[in-house]
């Protein structure tokens, strides 16, 4: 009986001991596994953090590139603006020159000069002395150009740099277009300057009057001239 009780007690103690040992062992193992579980977690975190850092660095680089490109664009735009202004100026100049050259219509204030044949002719033999010749017209035109006329027209036909004015009998031919007297010469330019240069003492008008031609000079607010037809 005594022996049995002893055995039973020993068994109970050893059972408890074994249980404790096993539980502890398993617990420790689970704990170690947990730690091993933590490790890949940490590695993943590290990996993603690294990736994040890489991405941020990349972003920064790209941002810097964007800034540089923006600066380039700004500079380019400024250049464009200045070159556009230049082009604008150049185009304006071209238009002005074309207007002067006769390739474009032109309008503006100016003066007109009318040359008429003398109505009273003393003798038929000297009729040449009393009518308007091509040289008179050329004289007026040259004087007008000298005075700064921008464009000149005879009876509404514009004069160009290669125009010719000739006498053919009683009519004057301007670029093969014939006009009888009277001739109205229009000039666009500063009216005061043009008129004063015409009316100078011993000037063009004096000469024309001396050659028995009736001259009428006046200013016009607005004169329109067509462009050369090509």
């Amino acid at each position: 009986m005594k022996m049995k009780s002893k055995r039973a007690i020993l068994s109970l103690v050893l059972f408890t001991f074994g249980f404790l040992i096993a539980a502890s062992f398993q617990n420790t193992k689970a704990f170690v596994f947990e730690q091993e579980d933590v490790d890949p977690d940490w590695e993943r975190t590290f990996y993603y953090t690294q990736q994040l850092i890489d991405f941020e660095k990349q972003n920064q680089d790209l941002q810097q590139e964007i800034n540089e490109v923006r600066a380039d664009i700004l500079q380019f735009e400024n250049e464009l603006v200045s070159s556009e202004e230049e082009i604008k100026d150049t185009v304006q100049e071209k238009i002005d020159l074309q207007a002067l050259n006769g390739e474009l219509p032109i309008e503006g204030p100016g003066i007109f000069i009318t040359l008429k044949d003398q109505e009273y002719v003393p003798s038929e033999e000297s009729i040449d002395d009393y009518i308007v010749h091509d040289r008179h017209v050329q004289l007026v035109i040259n004087e007008l150009y000298s005075a700064g006329a921008e464009a000149i027209a005879i009876n509404g036909q514009r004069i160009y740099h290669d125009s010719h004015i000739v006498c053919t009998g009683p009519v004057i031919s301007v670029d093969n277009q014939q006009y009888p007297a009277p001739f109205e010469i229009e000039a666009i330019g500063n009216p005061n300057t043009l008129r004063e240069s015409m009316e100078l003492d011993r000037g063009v008008i004096d000469q024309l009057v001396n050659e028995q031609i009736e001259v009428e000079v006046g200013a016009r607010e607005q004169i329109n001239m067509n462009s050369k037809l090509r």
Partner: peptide, 23 residues
């Protein structure tokens, strides 16, 4: 004499089988 040893193994086995998890 075998009974205590048997109980030791029984305890170990039970400990492993019950899967006790201590915080």
């Amino acid at each position: 004499m075998w009974l205590p040893l048997l109980f030791l193994l029984l305890g170990i086995g039970l400990g492993f089988l019950t899967d006790v998890s201590v915080p």
